[in-house]
Amino acid sequence: MKIELTVNGVVRTLDLPPLVRLLDVLRGPLGLTGTKEGCGEGECGTCAVLLDGEPVNACLVPIGQCDGRMVVTVEGLAVDGAPGALGRAMAEHGGAQCGICTPGMMISAEALLVARPAPSAAEVRHALGGNLCRCTGYERIVDSVLRAAAARRGAGEVGP
């Protein structure tokens, strides 16, 4: 099936079996290995990407449903090739340890911060409810997102 979609701002044309998972297309033919596979069944949020601006689990999205749509992966959150406020806050404030859940956490946080530039801690927790971390616990991740939100407001930085 011919599929044309925009990934991180670049139009990509693919010819693939339609039920192949978006996750496998990103990590395989598109070479975007920032998105990780965790459980593969929608439980952990590790493979989260933005689909038309909404956070989804790429392991549960058939590529055939992505024709004409816009995907943003963790690579797309970079600003001029370097981590944006979210990535910096995760690194600087202990939000990332082993790093496997971090891309999904950042995607869910990005979706939140676009809609709510000044979220409460409770709103951050709700937004990250579908993302599991087995290393740090959640305090430092929530803290990192709140710090990134403050930095973005201060710097006038906006998401992609």
């Binding site: 689909l51 956070p55 689990n57 579908g130």
Partner: peptide
Amino acid sequence: SHDIGGPTIQAR
């Protein structure tokens, strides 16, 4: 609707 899975499940 806010209690179904998490936001990534709710979006789909």
